[in-house]
């Protein structure tokens, strides 16, 4: 009988679910949001429908991400550092350093044999995270999805001197008022975020190959700005939002395999999709 493994990555901005056996059978990415966060079970349900599987057939469920602690239907919670490491190790085995730029934090992870051996994290300041671009995009009246492409058309990217997101927003609006072309401002913003992330990750002694994951990896402007900082290209998984969820599913598989080898029975949560209790 086939075994199926689910990984659910409840991030601050997006909720990601992956169902795997030998490969990814189904994946769903949905916004977390204040209301959606309580409805992580629905994202899971959607993934089960896509995979054409009843929940009872899932052998093991691992939750990761910001809201992992309160996913009641998960069998185990594992940190996003470990899950990202496992996911990237599986997708891009040649990678030694992972840079993950999420909606609310950014992190650097050092890999050896596909497992995290060191990490750094910024969860204190919105600068250096997806939130920085989100907030400044709003200030500029530009759609977040257009920011990356627009940054590539910058001819003379301006220097954004404020590292604080709130003040940077004021600064870019002032630059706009001064008549600085929009692409140059957006280019400057991307350089600022790349510089901040780079200076944090440098603590790890960055080794090639470097992978970029998280929502930040979907922004071509940020990818290019980081490549400029690093001085070489980075690798981006096919769907950079899913690495944590894939890693979670794979770690679930590892756990089940190890338990089977030891002849142990693993405790499992009830296979009933309940609301995540993040806010309660």
């Amino acid at each position: 009988m086939s075994q199926y493994f689910a990984g659910i990555d409840l991030g601050s901005t997006m909720t990601k679910v992956v169902i795997m056996n030998q490969a990814v059978l189904a994946s769903v990415i949905g916004p977390t949001g204040p209301e959606h966060r309580k409805l992580a079970n629905r994202v899971m349900e959607e993934a089960l429908v896509k995979a054409n599987l009843p929940f009872a057939d899932i052998t093991y469920v691992v939750a990761t991400g910001y809201g992992r602690i309160n996913v009641p239907f998960a069998d185990k919670q594992i940190t996003e550092i470990s899950c990202h490491a496992r996911g990237v190790g599986y997708l891009l085995p040649e990678v030694r350093t992972v840079i993950d730029i999420g909606g609310q934090d950014s992190k650097g992870i050092k890999l050896k044999d596909g497992r995290a051996v060191d990490f750094v994290m910024n969860d204190k300041c919105a600068a250096g995270t997806g939130r920085f671009l989100e907030v400044t995009a709003e200030g500029l009246g530009v759609k977040l999805d257009d920011m990356g492409k627009l940054s590539l058309t910058a001819k003379n990217a301006v220097r954004i001197s404020n590292t604080c997101t709130v003040f940077a927003t004021q600064e870019v609006v002032a630059k706009l008022a001064e008549g600085v072309p929009l692409p140059d401002i957006i280019g400057g913003l991307h350089e600022a975020i790349a510089a901040r992330v780079y200076s944090m990750v440098r603590r790890l002694k960055i080794e090639r190959e470097v992978a970029l994951t998280g929502g930040g990896a979907k922004n071509i402007g940020l990818v290019k700005a980081l490549e400029t900082k690093l001085g070489y290209p980075v690798l981006v998984p096919p769907e950079p939002l899913l690495t944590g969820a894939i890693g979670a599913a794979l770690l679930g598989k590892d756990i089940v395999k190890e338990a089977a080898e030891k002849g142990e029975t693993l405790p499992r949560s009830e296979r009933r999709l309940q609301e995540a209790t993040f806010f309660t």
Partner: peptide, 23 residues
């Protein structure tokens, strides 16, 4: 101070310790 973030970091650190030990 943010207790949740601090403890998330500690959790991740414990994971890396375990990974290094198991290697």
């Amino acid at each position: 101070y943010n207790e949740a973030d601090t403890r998330a970091r500690i959790d991740a650190f414990i994971d890396t310790l375990e990974a290094v030990k198991s290697r």
